[in-house]
Amino acid sequence: MDLGALYEEVILDHNRSPRNWGEVPGGTSVEGRNPLCGDRISLSVRLDGDTIADVRFTGEGCAISKASASMMTQAIKGKTTAEAEALFTGFHDLVTGQAAGSPPDKALGSLRAFAGVARFPTRVKCATMAWHAMREALERSRV
């Protein structure tokens, strides 16, 4: 059974106790939704120049979407917007299986735990919802 590959211990841990839970005071907020299942995320970001000074989230969703959001906030906090964008691409390739064959991007660090999602095509959207919200939030913060 592949379940172990999907529900890595680190994912279950972030699902149980999500990090950076809440709202950034005075930050730019974005709502992400998966209309198919009703999952939703509210992500808020504050930029300091081009650096992500703070990022937090709340929401409702499955273990994959919640853990993905939680681990994303850890991964992008303190990074520049360009670095966050690069992580988005790497993560996206990882969970959609486009990185298959090549060794996983080292820069992804613990996010590599999501590699198993590629074998569950119906769950890709769960993993990427927070990341799409993040992109939109950065886009809006820059304007």
Partner: peptide, 23 residues
């Protein structure tokens, strides 16, 4: 409690059990 319906459905699917999860 503590498990989202989607995760339930994915785990059940691995057992050949097809249910619906969502709204």
């Amino acid at each position: 409690e503590g498990v989202h319906p989607h995760d339930i459905a994915t785990i059940l699917d691995q057992h050949g059990v097809a249910i619906r999860a969502g709204h």
